[in-house]
């Protein structure tokens, strides 16, 4: 009986997940080729796991209902079957190969050497801000948690985070990027390891002091995309968000020109003065 109740509860849960879809239950497909690859793989493997789970747990639950001593079941005495064991070694291998094939293809796509970048952005993580340098444009700035979030997130601030727009996911200076262009990121860090992650781009990459990591993106749709530092980096690790403002190439050109005009004011200060 308990099992039946449990199954009913499980069914309800599964049914209600559909209704919850808008409340952030699942990975989102994102706005780049890579994010769509990651999403597609995620969904594919999730459903394979669900199918295997339904099968295995189904057999188990059936057995727990049917083969009970209280129902007068007599225990069988078999203890091995070479055929069965070969079958449930071979079938998982085949399923794994079926999973590995698209995963390999995806990795090869994501890691393929690219020769031409339309834009190179150097990303430097430090406690607890991001610094962006547009390498060929002579534009750089530091991007920190927005002032309002920062006020409300103080211990016992007594303020209601739900009144803050994009609480903890907003910055003072977003990273402005053009859509439809190959952007190359060079990621590094000044103090400890950070990890630069915007889910809509489909990857995160560690920013490591003394190393320069490379990553690529081509954003397909204008919009605001938010993310966070994903590698524990000290006290305020939870408070170094990332915001990308993806705009059309024309708007981007205009933005760059404007940055250059106010270059003296916008010129980044040495990091030592910032902390």
């Amino acid at each position: 009986m308990k099992n039946l109740k449990m199954m009913a509860a499980l069914g309800l849960l599964l049914a209600s997940t559909g209704a919850w879809a808008e409340y952030g239950l699942n990975m989102t497909p994102g706005v780049t080729e890579f994010s769509q690859i990651a999403y597609g793989l995620h969904m594919k493997i999730l459903w394979i796991c669900v199918a295997i789970g339904v099968l295995v747990f189904g057999v188990m639950i059936y057995s727990m209902i049917a083969h009970r001593k209280s129902k007068g079941a007599q225990p069988a005495q078999f203890s091995h079957s070479t055929t069965a064991e070969i079958v449930w070694t071979i079938i998982p291998i085949l399923i794994l190969v079926y999973m590995a094939y698209p995963a390999t293809k995806a990795l090869i796509t994501m890691e393929a050497p690219r020769d031409k970048a339309d834009l190179i952005v150097k990303v430097t993580g430090f406690q607890w801000r991001w610094r962006y340098d547009y390498l060929n444009e002579d534009v750089s700035f530091i991007s920190s948690l927005d002032a309002e979030s920062n006020r409300v997130r103080q211990l016992k601030s007594g303020e209601d985070p739900s009144q803050v727009k994009d609480y903890l996911l907003n910055v003072d200076h977003p990273l402005v990027l053009p859509v439809g262009k190959q952007v190359k990121f060079l990621l590094t860090a000044d103090d400890v390891i950070h990890s630069w992650w915007v889910p809509a781009l489909g990857w995160k990459r560690d920013a490591i002091p003394g190393f320069v990591n490379e990553a690529w993106t081509k954003i397909e749709k204008p919009g605001i995309y938010r993310g966070q530092c994903a590698e524990l980096c000290g006290r305020d690790h939870g408070f170094m968000p990332i915001v990308i403002k993806a705009v059309t190439p024309e708007e981007f050109e205009a933005w760059v020109a404007e940055q250059k005009k106010s270059a003296v004011a916008g010129r980044v200060q040495p990091i030592a003065d910032q902390s």
Binding site: V59, S63, R68, K69, S70, Q74, F78
Partner: peptide
């Protein structure tokens, strides 16, 4: 699972 299968289970 095969161990449980066709046993005489108590819980």
């Amino acid at each position: 699972v095969a161990t449980m299968w066709k046993g005489a289970m108590t819980f």
